[in-house]
């Protein structure tokens, strides 16, 4: 089954649309009265999108949703997704893939903040850049993302993989400040630069293949190790937090 949702122009283009109903399962099970919200107004899906559905599906995994047009203010797409595929051809709004447990989301453009928040499984690939709190958790909750993979081919914002508690996060570009802060388990890889990586981490593993600026001063230097034949410094910490995480860093600078 192929579901094509083309975003229509809106009178107030900046007001966000909350569309947690846009997940493969909804279409697999039938969608007569699917609604989305513009603020406090509940609207039929068709008021916001041109909807086209082709073909049938035997299982949720055979459903593919394609989103066309300006979806940069459409929030919560793919929330609780448990199978199938969502392909976003442009940018996507906040909270894409919240709590997702299976399936795949591909974003051709950029993703706004909280991409893959509290994700449990499945895969998100963002070909543009991601906003703050990419693959992070929720306010007050000790454990954030717990499984699955988030891969960002551009840059990511601040607090990437905050409270990471499982799964893997790969940022091909640079990550902002405090990436991997308070992480507990799982694996974070940053191909480019970041700052203050993994502050206060208690466990898990992180690789920074570029430079960590303002390196947190409370990681214990274990020594030099080779990663893919290149020299890296291995750290353990965060000692301030009784942490037992591991960091492999190509280059680093303290704020001294």
């Amino acid at each position: 089954m192929k579901v094509t949702l083309e975003v229509k122009p809106r009178q107030k283009p900046y007001l966000p649309i909350e569309a947690e109903g846009i997940v493969p399962r909804t279409f697999f099970e039938g969608t007569d009265s699917l609604t989305v919200f513009r603020g406090n107004k509940e609207l039929p899906l068709e008021e916001i999108f041109n909807v086209a559905i082709e073909g049938e599906a035997e299982s949720v995994d055979e459903v593919e949703i394609i989103i066309l047009g300006d979806s940069s203010r459409i929030k919560r797409v793919g929330e609780y997704m448990d199978g199938g595929r969502i392909h976003i051809t442009g940018d996507i709004g906040m909270h894409c893939g919240n709590f997702m447990s299976a399936g795949e989301i591909v974003i051709d453009g950029n993703a706004d903040a909280w991409l893959g928040r509290e994700m449990r499984g499945g895969r998100i690939r963002c070909h543009g850049s991601a906003g703050d709190y990419c693959a992070a958790g929720y306010r007050g909750e000790k454990r954030g993302m717990r499984g699955g993979t988030v891969e960002v081919f551009g840059d990511a914002g601040d607090f990437t993989a905050e409270t990471l508690a499982g799964g893997s996060v790969i940022i091909h570009g640079n990550a902002g400040d405090l990436s991997g802060v308070d992480m507990k388990e799982g694996e974070l890889t940053i191909m480019g630069d970041t700052s203050r990586a993994c502050a206060n981490m208690s466990g898990g593993m992180a690789y920074v293949h570029g430079t960590v600026n303002d390196m947190i001063p409370t990681f214990r230097k274990i020594g030099q190790e080779k990663v893919n034949g290149e020299p890296y410094t291995r750290f353990s910490g965060d000692i301030a937090n009784r942490g037992k995480g591991t960091l492999f860093i190509r280059n680093y600078k303290y704020l001294d």
């Binding site: 203050r196 001063p217 301030a240």
Partner: peptide, 12 residues
């Protein structure tokens, strides 16, 4: 911008 680092150091 150094408050965080100083606090971590104090804790350690």
């Amino acid at each position: 911008g150094g408050d965080y680092a100083v606090l971590s150091a104090l804790r350690a």
